[in-house]
Design a protein around this nucleic acid. Structure first.
Lengths: 330, 330
DNA sequence: TTGAAAGCGCTAACAC
DNA sequence: GTGTTAGCGCTTTCAA
């Protein structure tokens, strides 16, 4: 089928292209009779409006860019599901971009986003520095950031207060029993989140007057945290570990098991983000059940708001978590 | 920053827009001196070419559409990773579409794809019927299908011979020991794959002269296969199960464990697709290690070939699997 | 209610 | 080498 344009339809229907355009866009000012004529022509020719040309004419692509860390679908999958469901409602298309660590790659990605003239962008990336946001901002893109609290004229955010989550849990444990030594496990893929978790735990320790780092760093020489835990889990100073992603907690759990430690008797574990992993593994992890799907859905909703009207009332939307004890804690 | 166009750059540099266009596109026929002038102007103004306008003028969007089943990132994640890595090399952007079961939704998705005038499309969807492919074909989209063997003028495919995989394994087991009763577990989300697995197992049974369905259907009333197995795993006629996705095998494994069965002594399990799940779970599943990442990477590579020109020599690319025994089998 | 024509930003002959 | 100009397919005043 050769490309059929609005001109072809116009000719076929014996009207002008302006009229065809009106029919396509459902403008009311078209007489029933001619509307039918046009619609018949459209069907007959199999005409589909060219979104690229529409984009040019309207200065609006009805497309948003989604930026996530590369190889992160394990924990961003649910967010994306939420995003897409809402995007479908508002008829937005999604350009998927993944960003690698290296600053160079990120610059390229930002460049692609700018060139593609999307209407807005949603970012889930712990590593994204102000630098890039500023660049995006220069070009007037409405942005929604998932995971970090931040906002300005052009930026909104949707997030969970991880610091508080960790703080509360740690405090509760420390108060409950002196024997508890709580630590946060570094998430090398999510520096900012790690920092927030650390901040939360430090607050709790400080409040209890205890001197403790409460932090387990995974040395760079270990490719996987699992390997690190295999080597070190028996000699940890801690008996209660908090991980960001369930997969990390599971790594520790498996290593512990490998070394003859029993969960939760010898070691207790908690994670913040539940993915499908956690429904498969035994024992199941206690978690904060961070609402990933909702993070995505709300982010998209906020973006459409920014896109449609201008002022969004609340630019920093905090979603709540629900601590859910399971078998990995006593 | 207000929108800066190629005209602005031309004026700033004191040249015509054609020259700017040449500089942007790295055409050689520009004098060094003017090239520098133009580049300075571009930098000064922060000009970024408008990909939408380029798309219109060139009839080429440098974008491909990726279609996957909704909520499938658990097992399509790796495919997407491979896809993206190769797409980056060739500078293609990716429009992400997910398709729900309902035929209506799929029609809408196809419609969006057509309207967006992408250069090509990659489909991973077991459920995609010829109907939709024909529609896409009418509009001349080069298509690469992942998972099914098929091809024509405009369609290529990248896949693994699942039928053979299941056939070989089943046969081997049946020959090895009379006590084996092998069965395939239905994957409700992947009918076509399920059919292939069934075909493989039936061939093996037939060859051994054994009358057996070798098939476990998960009734619709069970929301999750896990629930089904909880109810039925003790009374199965089979002692060796083959699942498509690792997550399904894990469901069965967890249910078995729940019911006091031991893996692999009472029940052996194998899956075709490994995801990260399988690296987390204990015991680890024996699998065919279907090369998901490569499926994506090769698919994208084939698509770029179709896009760039010539006849693609091999339109049906079969990737190989490697059966990898682990703890879930004896 | 409908049509004519300008414009969205860029590319690619074709001239000079 | 560089500029002019005609599209690419659609939307949207402005007239009629």
């Amino acid at each position: 089928m050769k490309r059929v344009t609005i001109y072809d339809v116009a000719k076929e229907a014996g009207v002008s292209l302006a009229t065809v355009s009106r029919v396509i866009n459902g403008l009311e000012i078209v007489r029933e009779e001619t509307r039918v004529k046009v619609e018949d022509a459209i069907d007959k020719l199999g005409y589909k409006p060219n979104a690229v040309a529409q984009g040019l004419a309207l200065q609006k692509t009805t497309t948003i860019a989604l930026l996530v860390p590369e190889a992160s679908f394990g924990y961003t999958g649910q967010i994306i599901n939420g995003l897409i469901d809402v995007a479908k409602i508002y008829k937005y298309n999604i350009m998927l971009h993944t960003m690698t660590e290296g600053i160079v790659d990120i610059k390229d990605v930002i460049d692609d986003v700018i060139k593609s003239r999307v209407d807005g962008v949603i970012i889930y990336n712990d590593k994204l520095m102000d630098q890039e946001l500023i660049e995006l901002n220069k070009y007037q893109f409405p942005i929604v950031v998932i995971g970090n609290r931040m906002s300005n004229q052009q930026i909104s955010s949707v997030f969970v207060d991880i610091e508080k989550a960790v703080y509360e849990l740690t405090l509760q444990k420390l108060q409950q029993d002196k024997k508890y030594r709580v630590a946060v496990i570094q998430d090398r893929k999510n520096d900012f989140t790690t920092a927030q978790m650390r901040s939360g735990i430090q607050q709790a320790y400080k409040e209890m007057g205890i001197e403790d780092e409460g932090y387990i760093e995974i040395p760079q020489e270990y490719r996987r945290s699992y390997d690190y835990f295999l080597d070190n889990i028996e000699n940890l100073d801690y008996n209660f570990l908090i991980a960001n992603r369930d997969s990390q907690a599971i790594s520790a759990m498996n290593a512990a098991h490998e070394r003859g430690l029993s969960i939760p008797d010898d070691l207790e574990l908690v994670c913040l983000i539940d993915s499908k992993y956690n429904s498969m593994v035994r024992p199941r992890l206690s978690s904060f059940a961070i609402p990933s799907y909702d993070l995505g859905a709300v982010a998209m909703r906020v973006l459409t708001k920014m896109l449609n009207e201008d002022e969004v009332e609340d630019k920093e939307i905090e979603l709540s978590y629900l601590y859910t004890p399971r078998q990995s804690t006593k």
